[in-house]
Amino acid sequence: MLALSDLQKQLLNDFQRDFPLTPRPYETIAAQLGVSEKDVLSALEALHQAQCISRIGAVIPPNKIGVSTLAAMSVPDDALVRVAMQINQYAEVNHNYEREHAVNLWFVLIAKDAAHLDCVIALIENETGYRVLRFPLVKEFFIDLSFRLDLTHDR
């Protein structure tokens, strides 16, 4: 387990949004934190290696670009990994989780339009042999605000 440096904690908590749109964004962050660009890059590299961050990236609201849906399947335990890997192969799938429930595989699909989404779901159902339940967003009350991490306690 990575022991987090102060710099890494700052990077995790203070840069979840408003990432600098400057030619050298890591240098911009470094200047704010009083360190070098190289320090920022190596801290982020270490966080990435340790799986503390998934990426420096963009969060896209559902259905603003293209069409998305939450989807779920009930898959027997002994087939779950196989089915999860089959689903993961589709570029349209960006999240895929096992949850402790009879409806145990939950994933998010994003497609250019409704026809594309239907097509991918049909392909997944055909390939896996399990039915896909669809739960498209009706209304968002709160979405993906950066989450203040308490990084002080024991893991």
């Binding site: 995790l12 408003d18 503390c52 990236g57 896209i60 993906d144 991490l149």
Partner: peptide
Amino acid sequence: KRLGVIVK
């Protein structure tokens, strides 16, 4: 919606 560090 936001651009930045996406934590695990």
